[in-house]
């Protein structure tokens, strides 16, 4: 019998969104043939949570979902203690989702010093420094199942993944969410009259879309294999980033009519110049309905 890689899926301060996003993985049979969970929040496992916290069960990957605080307990044991115990024996640690990586929404849940494993939003955390070499982050609220599962396969196959400054695999996070959005042309040519409920228009100008400055593959690896938020017409909320959740998410913050946050690497002056030129295009096809009569 071939050896399965053993995973401990540990939830800290979480909503289980990553758990359910993972269940969307279409090739589950194959996955469960290659990996086994010594504990998972939903899938049956050989051990109970009580076993996990009271004993030391052999495993290869520690997977953490949810924000982390010493004060937060699972089965009467602090999640920090559980992480410390298992981080010593595993080959790799994967922080799954934005809470486990940066603190995310539940950073504000009121527990003492709540943060991600290695980052408190953008700031490197002082804890767990010795684990930095072991950790890969797959942020997102929730993570995309393919990003998670293929990262786990990369670990299994001992592929050396290139990581960004937040320990995220570049394979998935070198892109911006803007890449592949079906509304791209409205952005390129600065057609800034988006209304909700339409196929047309770009949400960057008025409705808070963060896709041009958010790292992720949402428009490259589609959600549920069929769509993405921005394609559907919902602004990208920047959920893979340390700043998630920002405030006033459905509004674009502007200074003197210029969006405060510009596409990654784009300077304000250049943006203004280019926007002026792009606006001159006046492309008829983009001014009217996509499916016109």
């Amino acid at each position: 019998m071939k050896k399965k890689m053993r995973i401990l899926w540990l939830s800290a301060i979480a909503c289980n969104g990553n758990t359910h996003s993972f269940l969307n993985y279409p090739y589950m049979e194959q996955f469960l043939d290659d990996f086994e969970f010594i504990y998972h929040p939903v899938i049956d496992s050989e051990y109970s949570l009580k076993d996990i916290v009271s004993k030391e069960i052999t495993c290869d990957i520690l997977l953490i979902e949810g924000a982390i605080s010493k004060e937060f307990k699972r089965a009467d044991v602090s999640v920090v203690d559980i992480i410390e115990k298992y981080s010593k024996i595993v080959q790799k640690i994967v922080t799954v989702g934005t809470c486990a990586t940066f603190g995310g929404i539940f950073r504000e849940s009121g527990y003492e010093n709540t943060s991600g494993l290695h980052f408190d939003q953008e700031e490197p955390s002082e804890n767990f420094q010795d684990l930095l070499d072991k950790t890969i982050s797959v942020s997102g609220c929730p993570v995309h199942h393919e990003v998670l599962v293929n990262t786990l396969y990369a670990i299994k196959k001992e592929v050396a993944l290139k990581l960004d400054n937040f320990l995220r695999p570049k394979e998935f996070y070198a892109y911006t969410v803007h890449n592949g959005c079906t509304r791209n042309e409205y952005f390129e040519y600065k057609v800034d009259n988006h209304r909700f409920g339409e196929l047309e228009g770009c949400m960057f100008y008025d409705h808070g879309c963060q896709a041009p400055f958010t790292h992720g593959s949402c428009n490259k690896i589609l959600w549920n294999e069929v769509n993405s938020k921005t394609r559907a017409g919902l602004p990208c909320m920047g959920c893979t980033e340390p700043t998630f959740p920002r405030q006033n998410l459905f509004n674009t913050k502007k200074n003197m009519a210029i969006p405060e946050n510009l596409p990654v690497g784009v300077g304000k002056r250049v943006y203004l110049t280019l926007a002026g030129i792009s606006k001159a295009f006046k492309i008829d096809r983009l001014e009217k309905k996509l499916f016109d009569d």
């Binding site: 549920n224 769509n227 993405s228 938020k229 921005t230 394609r231 559907a232 017409g233 959920c239």
Partner: peptide, 9 residues
């Protein structure tokens, strides 16, 4: 909604 879970559509 663009995705499930966690859409705000």
């Amino acid at each position: 909604g663009g995705q499930y879970p966690h859409t705000s559509y």
